[in-house]
Amino acid sequence: MLPKLLYIDQLSEGYVILITGLLIVFGSLIILSLFFKYGVPIMLYAYKIVTKGRDRKIKDISVTADEKFTGEIAAAIATAIHLYLSEKHDTENTILTIKQARKLYSPWSSKIYGTQNRL
């Protein structure tokens, strides 16, 4: 008697959990998505208004300090950096034969097969 009663009770509680659980999961994710759809833009807008005074536009940046910094100087620096980073063939490593040759035997210094004594 008792187990059956418990069983039925469990199932009905299961349904309660099923419905409420699904609703809560949906509800919380809907709230989250609504917040990011509408809440966050508002927050960002508010932040923008609050910090407006300190936000510097490009036209606000004074150019007097950089008057002598012309396009030519910039080009020269850029070229130098480019050359330094990617055109460094002149200063390549000169140690060429540090790795062991894959072949165990090579006749490069052979006493038998030389230019003098061809077979």
Binding site: V25, F26, L29, I30, L32, S33, L34, F35, F36, K37
Partner: peptide, 10 residues
């Protein structure tokens, strides 16, 4: 694309 959150709920 916040509406895709609902798929995670579904």
């Amino acid at each position: 694309n916040p509406k895709l959150m609902l798929l995670g709920a579904a």
